[in-house]
Design a protein around this nucleic acid. Structure first.
Lengths: 136, 136
DNA sequence: AGTAGACCTCGAGTTAACTCTATGTTAAAT
DNA sequence: ATTTAACATAGAGTTAACTCGAGGTCTACT
């Protein structure tokens, strides 16, 4: 079965070898096997697992929690419920993040309009409340 | 004109007073005025500015770059172009983030399905490649 | 006048996630 | 056989964004 070196995997996943070794040190890669001299050999399935780790990371999950998940995977079928619950919770979290990011985008869009108008006028004053003082 | 204390603003924006003072220390709040004894008085417009700061923060912009924007605001109309460009760039960034988060959500959804099926079967083995060795 | 609670500054401490340095080993190519 | 590049570990250093502690001041209220 073909295996990959740490630098090949780093290149493929756009990570550094430092990061991969750090993940290993944190217990995220217990499944990666070594040669007799201690060199890591990444299998195709290890790269797939790393993609899941990157996916969890991109949901904002901290590495210590990802480690819990990896530990559950090692523990086998007894932890299926925990793992399911975790993904359901992640799903809810990502959906919330999506909603918030959409709201952020709306505000940014407004600011783009605001500055477009100001630029065309040459001054931000076009947006200042322009109440005319009526003398009495 | 009504003003607000630092703790009132913290409560309203769901931040801590520590964070607000930290922002001030980093130069994000040069517009906040003080009483003669040095106590911060937040105006309505200061709170609006803080909302923009929070918006930029939620796009992933680091505080040092937000400070550049705040400095540009203090510099007036001469920086309108920079500020416009910045928001256009933020818009592109958020749109990229949205796409990536949607891809992440798809993978998470798949994992939810995967674990739902595994849970129903009581074992993850249902997903193992199940090629039947045909004896020849 | 005295006290409690909110305010202030300064600077140190924390945390996460890397990132790198020093030192040594291994594997491939000349 | 030797060099070179990639691999290894241990542990120190970095960075961002807070977070807090110490020590002091201010304001409102009895």
């Amino acid at each position: 079965m073909k295996t990959y070196s740490i630098s090949e995997v780093a290149k493929q996943l756009d990570l550094t070898v430092y990061t991969l070794r750090y993940y290993d040190k944190e217990g995220l890669l217990p499944f990666v096997e070594r040669t007799s001299s201690g060199i890591r050999m990444f299998k195709e399935s290890d790269i797939e697992a790393l993609k899941v780790i990157e996916c969890l990371k991109s949901t904002g999950m901290p590495i210590k929690e990802i480690k819990n998940f990896i530990d559950w995977c090692s523990d086998g079928d007894a932890t299926l419920q925990q793992r399911y619950d975790m993904f359901i919770e992640r799903k809810a979290s990502v959906e919330t993040q999506l909603k918030e990011l959409k709201k952020t985008l709306e505000l940014i869009d407004h600011k783009c309009d605001y500055y477009k108008t100001a630029l065309e006028a040459g001054t931000e004053d076009v947006h200042k409340a322009n109440k005319i003082e009526i003398p009495h």
